[in-house]
Amino acid sequence: MTQILEDNNIKLSQDNIPSHIAVIMDGNGRWAKKRGLPRVAGHKEGMNNVKTIAIKASKLGVKVLTLYAFSTENWGRPSTEVNFLMKLPIDFFGVFMPELMQNNIRVFATGILDDVPEKTRNIIIKAIDETKNNTGMILNFAFNYGGRADILEATKRIVKKIQNDELVIDDIDESLFSKNLLTNTLKGFSDPDLLIRTSGETRISNFMLWQMAYTEMIFEDILWPDYSPENLVEDIYKFQNRDRRFGKLN
């Protein structure tokens, strides 16, 4: 029997909660500009909203929530903004770690952390270690992540294994390629079921290009700092009313 969860007068099927939700948290700068504030104020407000949405997703039964926190292209922004963004993980985990622990949330990171400033990298690694025994939802930060870089690095790893006689070309299939992507740490949940992008933009911005082959996508006009738990419930409801055929016929 299908179990029904009623939230904000919306009925959700507990049997069809997306296992992996990915979010492009867009609109922080515009949120600040509308209020006559510097862009960094929007990023700070967006950081605060991460906790709110993560806890709600966890309570709804989501297995993995991936947040696109910093892309490989974001290095091209003004240095003052980049420096602030590099400081956000330090502030976030410094403030919200007790609540993440209380909600049994486990922290992961997907990205090229070797290129991140040492202080930022260390706090992310520390958060991953401190939550490693938690058994609830995985809060996965895509930090210094780019979909093209992910695919290129996976290709290089496979080529190197062929050069070392660990593989032959005929060994390469979709499964093997997926295992060489950065999202392999998520195991059975590496491919998002649902992508949400806030701010009204309708592009995926070099995010999980391989992994999102059959991801359902929802583009919200809401700026990320204003995106609420109620909006998340509504988007999951929209997801549950999609007909997912994966290229086949039902």
Rank of each mutant, 00 (worst) to 15 (best):
K11F: 10
L12T: 13
S13L: 14
S13Q: 08
Q14D: 10
Q14A: 13
Q14F: 11
Q14Y: 13
D15Y: 03
D15M: 02
D15V: 05
N16K: 10
N16Y: 08
I17V: 15
I17C: 04
I17G: 02
P18A: 05
P18W: 10
P18L: 07
P18K: 04
P18G: 07
S19E: 15
H20D: 10
H20K: 04
H20N: 08
I21D: 09
A22V: 03
A22M: 01
A22I: 05
V23Q: 01
V23D: 02
I24P: 13
I24A: 04
M25N: 09
M25K: 04
M25G: 11
D26V: 04
D26C: 13
D26A: 14
D26K: 09
G27S: 13
G27N: 14
N28K: 02
G29R: 03
R30K: 08
W31Y: 12
A32I: 04
A32S: 14
K33R: 15
K34S: 12
K34G: 06
K34P: 06
K34M: 14
R35H: 14
G36F: 01
L37Q: 15
P38K: 09
P38S: 11
R39K: 11
R39C: 14
V40N: 09
V40R: 06
V40F: 04
A41N: 06
A41F: 08
G42F: 00
K44I: 04
K44N: 05
K44G: 00
E45K: 13
E45Q: 08
E45V: 00
G46I: 01
G46L: 02
M47T: 11
N49I: 01
N49K: 04
N49G: 11
K51T: 10
T52A: 06
T52Q: 12
I53C: 12
I53F: 14
I55H: 09
K56P: 10
A57W: 09
S58A: 14
K59W: 07
K59M: 12
L60N: 01
L60S: 10
G61P: 07
V62I: 15
V62S: 09
V62G: 03
K63V: 08
V64W: 04
L65P: 03
L65R: 02
Y68G: 00
A69G: 10
A69T: 03
A69R: 00
F70N: 01
F70T: 00
